[in-house]
Design a protein around this nucleic acid. Structure first.
Lengths: 150, 150
DNA sequence: AATCAGAGTTCCCTAAGGGAACCCCAAACT
DNA sequence: AGTTTGGGGTTCCCTTAGGGAACTCTGATT
């Protein structure tokens, strides 16, 4: 489709999209997260075309999000999250929180999250990494950073 | 490209992708967030094809993320975030945090976030909406919810 | 009347996704 | 030994979405 590459933009949103912004990628990460580590498992679960799944897995491995490792003498591998990939799960958690809130409808959320810390069903919300207080989008000023484009 | 629709899956990640998962959509929201509210502004800033921008804007308006409103007697409109759209910015903030951490490189992050609450340069991290403690992805149990597929 | 500017349309071309069939390889039957 | 099985992909063709440039429409403005 001769798609524009986002990787070269001076924008961390665009750069992140360059890694996991392609169709299916977040869903593949979700599957790996919940223990579907093998090609055929993921393919069957998502109903994704095998061709596209191959492309996405290769891309995620290339970008350091997934690790491909053998689990048998035969040429069999499974995919696991790298530390970088594990941190990406935060993005999925926020998507879940938003989707649960606005799109779950009558039936309610398809999956519930229980927080180990307090043992309660909950969801993710954003807080300031510095002071720990809530940090909604409106409570932020944007300033040019060192990597800003000229 | 006869793309599979994610909207019907019993998964809040897939449903959220159905709203903002298409190429460019998060970047369009970012632009609107920082005050680029008009078609030509966004088009010039992103370098997106006008055709695709039209499609994306219509989709985001249809899904209740943006509001299209006139600002002149002439047929001129600008796009603003709805409450639903404003909450989606959390997703962008997490993308920024991740991209800043893993992809900013030597130059450092292109944009800095200052939190109103504490006045410090910071970034978003996830906490439990129930108890307020940090909630990394590993500290969560997933349980079937009421809207789970059979 | 002619021009202008914002906000799209239209058209063509290329490339990406879907889908089904096919392939490769090591192990496990028979 | 020969065949089957099953994971993990390739290959091929078809359709459709994105890129890009040109064109249009509509009220101002000159």
């Amino acid at each position: 489709m001769q798609r524009t590459s986002f990787g070269d933009m001076a924008c961390s949103i665009a750069r992140t999209l360059d890694v996991v912004g392609e169709p299916w990628s977040p869903l593949i990460l979700r599957d790996v997260w919940v223990g579907m580590n093998r090609f055929d498992q993921i393919q069957a679960d998502l109903g994704i075309s095998r061709k596209v799944l191959t492309e996405r897995l290769n891309h995620l491995v290339d970008r350091g999000i997934l690790d491909r490792r053998p689990y048998d003498q035969r040429p069999r591998h499974e995919y696991v999250l790298t530390p970088q990939g594990t941190e990406l799960l935060q993005l999925l958690m926020v998507m879940v929180a938003w989707g649960d809130r606005w799109l779950a409808g009558e039936a309610g959320p398809p999956v519930l999250y229980r927080h180990h810390g307090c043992g309660e069903i909950s969801h993710a919300s954003l807080s300031c990494a510095h002071c720990g207080a809530p940090m909604p989008p409106g409570d932020i000023d944007l300033l040019a950073g060192p990597g800003a484009a000229q």
